[in-house]
C-alpha cells in the first residue's frame, strides 16, 4: 500500500516535472521563432522540418552570442550615414554604380560590426538572429547585385532603385540597432585623448 502510494507520488512528480520542462522548452522555441520573424519559415523550408529548424536557430543564436559585435562610434556612424546619402545622390548619374557602392558600404559596415563577410551564407544566418525582418530585402538586393555583376544590362533602372532601397533597409537596421552606435558622451571621451 505504502509502496504503491510512494510510486504514485513519484510518478506524479515526474509527470509534473516533464510537463514543466517541455512547457518551458516549448516556450523557448516559440520565443526564438518569433524573434527570427519571417526567417523562421524560411529556415524550416530549408531544413525540411520544425525540429531541424529549431536546431538551426539554436545554433545561430549560439554562434551569434560568440560574435564580438563592435559598437560603431558616433564619428563612424556619421561617416556611414553621409556616405549613404552620397551614394543615393550618385544614383542620378549611374544607377549601377550606386547599387554596387551601396553593397560595398554595407559590407564595410557589416565587417566593422563584426559579421563575417567572406561566407555569405553564414553572414545571412547570423544576421537573421537580430535583423531577421530586414533580410528579405537584403536577399533581394543581393540577387540584383549578382545579376548586375554577370550582366549589367539585365536590370532596368527601377530594379536598381529598388535594390538600393532594399540595401538601405538593412543599413538602417544596423545603424539604429540599440548598442550599435556609441552614445555621444562616450564618443567625446574617446575623442579628447
Amino acid at each position: 500500500m505504502i509502496i504503491a502510494a510512494v510510486f504514485a507520488v513519484i510518478a506524479i512528480v515526474l509527470v509534473i516535472a516533464f510537463a514543466a520542462y517541455s512547457g518551458r522548452h516549448e516556450y523557448t522555441k516559440r520565443r526564438i521563432r518569433t524573434a527570427f520573424g519571417p526567417e523562421y519559415a524560411r529556415v524550416r523550408a530549408e531544413q525540411g522540418g520544425t525540429r531541424a529548424a529549431d536546431r538551426e536557430l539554436a545554433r545561430r543564436s549560439q554562434m551569434h552570442d560568440r560574435l564580438p559585435l563592435e559598437p560603431i562610434s558616433a564619428n563612424d556612424r556619421e561617416f556611414y550615414a553621409t556616405s549613404w546619402q552620397h551614394i543615393r545622390g550618385g544614383f542620378l548619374d549611374d544607377p549601377g554604380v550606386a547599387v554596387t557602392s551601396a553593397a560595398q558600404l554595407l559590407t564595410r559596415l557589416l565587417e566593422a560590426r563584426g559579421y563575417p563577410v567572406d561566407d555569405q551564407g553564414e553572414q545571412l544566418a547570423l544576421l537573421s538572429v537580430r535583423h531577421g525582418p530586414a533580410l528579405a530585402d537584403y536577399r533581394q538586393a543581393l540577387w540584383v547585385s549578382e545579376r548586375l555583376r554577370t550582366n549589367p544590362a539585365s536590370m532596368p533602372t527601377e530594379a536598381k532603385r529598388e535594390a538600393l532601397m532594399q540595401y538601405q533597409t538593412l543599413f538602417e537596421d544596423l545603424l539604429t540597432e540599440p548598442g550599435a552606435a556609441v552614445s555621444r558622451r562616450i564618443k567625446e571621451s574617446e575623442v579628447t585623448p
Partner: peptide, 9 residues
Amino acid sequence: ERSPEPDSV
C-alpha cells in the same frame, strides 16, 4: 570622379 562628396552632389 564619381566621388560621393557633398559638393559633387
